[in-house]
Every structure is written in structure tokens, then in C-alpha cells.
Design a protein around this nucleic acid. Structure first.
Lengths: 127, 127
DNA sequence: CTAACATATGAATAGTTGTTCAAATGTTCA
DNA sequence: TGAACATTTGAACAACTATTCATATGTTAG
């Protein structure tokens, strides 16, 4: 992030290369800023390897923190921190059974997003 | 990231809560680590609002840096830096026409990923 | 109650990231 | 050639992030 508070004149291409027709057309087609921020937030959450591993695991099965930690070779604490982020983003839900808390995906859209990313990567890194 | 080099004993749930059947099953279903890292990298790139705006714009039309800067109210320099990241991830391609460089999406998988994210957000933040 | 365990939380911290500014390329045209 | 412009690049820095450690919370069994 790091937005500096300088007030220098922004050299934003004032002159010739502007294609106002394109700008106009694109501007109307853009996703609303607020929605786009939500989408970016979703991708950001899924953009961390540890969290994506967790998502990957939860696509396959409901799991407790302890199992996730063992599976991903992470500290339960680290897993818990990441689960908190996934919880705050409504990507996962949980249920308690005694001392153990089981996490699972909150909806199937998440796995759709995951698989779409997978498709991209598979087609990209392949002969 | 920030991986500390401590060598404390990792308290990784050694005792009772382990579900070895689940662990075994999930372990075999997991996406290969290297592929998963690529997917995470893709989401990470698309997880920044500025870059996602650029992607959003390029879904609608090929555009030059100057137009992107004007559309998104960013410095050409900032746009260029972000385009470099999108270029390095093979998300965009470009062509030169005189002084102007036009960017466009490298393939349609990118927009599929974008739309899948959009679907998730629309269903999530809606009655 | 207390001990044992699963999970959560807070603070600290090293690594990372996005923007800015200034300066460098590369291209066209007079 | 040299001025003008579009774009790129590098350094610097403030803001942010993920992990770690230590500690707290919540639950069960004895």
C-alpha cells in the first residue's frame, strides 16, 4: 500500500495518446469499485500458499485444526491464524464437537474459484 | 512470510485428535505442491485492487498505459510497475505501435478466474 | 476442583509490497 | 540532430503480512 501524501502534479498523459472512445466504453463496462474490492480481497485471501493449501484440503474434507496442522506441517497456532482470516472472509464455516473444532468450506463457489485457477495454471505450464 | 529460524519443538497435536483416515485420504487428493504454488501466485497477482482493476479493464478492451492511467487515476509509472508484474505472470501480452504500447489479456482463463470470483462475491453479498 | 488438551489470541518481528520520485529508454517527427 | 512524448526502471520508504512464542480460553475427564 504505502500511499505517500505528496502533492506533486501527477503526470497523467495529458496530451495525445488518449483514446477517449475506448475509455468511455471501458468505463461503463467496469465492475463497480466496491464489488471489485471484494473480489480482490477474495483473491488476496486465496493468494497465500498456506491458506490455499487449507482451502485445498477443505475442498476434500471437513477437517479439524489439529489435522490441518499435521497435514500441512504447520503450527496449530499458524493454522488457527490463517483460519481466522478465512473465517473473516466467510470462506469457511466451523462446528464444535467437544474440544475439537471442525472446519469446512462455506460454499462451493470457493472451490469453483480454486478450480478455475487450477485450469489456468495447468494450461499455462504444459506443452 | 518471515520464517524464523528457531528450533523449538513444534507442538503439533501429537496425541488424540488425529484422524488418520481423513489425513490419508486428503493427502492423496491434494494438488501437487508446485502446482498449488503457481495457483497461489496467480491469485496473489489478482489479489491487488489496482492490478485487478487493470485486469478488469483489459477484459473489456486492449488499452495503452496512458489510457489505463487515466481510467484508473493512477500514475503511468504505477500502472507500468503493475503491468510488469502482470507481464511476469504471463497474464497480459503487449504490442508496440509507435510510441504507444498496447496491453491485452494473454488468454481467456484469466477472465474466467475473474468472473468466478465475481460470482462468489455477488452471491455472498446479496439477499 | 484440577489436569490435560484443542484451539484462539496478542505482541513482536523479519520479510514483502505498492506507490512515489527521479532518471533512463525508446520512438517519432520536424 | 534534438525536442517531445510514452513507457520503463531503480531506489526508497511506509504500510502490511505471516509466522513465532507465550499466554489465554474453552472443553472434557478424573
Amino acid at each position: 500500500m504505502a500511499k505517500r501524501i505528496s502533492v506533486s502534479e501527477t503526470p497523467t498523459c495529458e496530451v495525445s495518446c488518449r483514446h477517449d472512445d475506448v475509455l468511455e466504453r471501458v468505463r461503463h463496462g467496469l465492475t463497480e469499485p466496491e464489488v471489485l474490492r471484494w473480489v480482490a480481497a477474495l483473491f488476496k485471501v486465496m493468494g497465500d500458499p498456506s491458506r490455499l493449501q487449507i482451502v485445498n484440503a477443505l475442498i476434500l474434507s471437513e477437517m479439524c485444526v489439529c489435522d490441518l496442522a499435521a497435514l500441512l506441517k504447520m503450527t496449530p497456532s499458524a493454522v488457527s491464524h490463517q483460519l481466522q482470516i478465512l473465517r473473516q472472509s466467510d470462506l469457511v464455516k466451523w462446528r464444535r464437537e467437544g474440544k475439537v473444532i471442525y472446519y469446512s468450506l462455506d460454499d462451493e463457489h470457493v472451490s469453483n474459484v480454486f478450480y478455475q485457477g487450477l485450469v489456468h495454471v495447468n494450461e499455462k505450464h504444459h506443452p
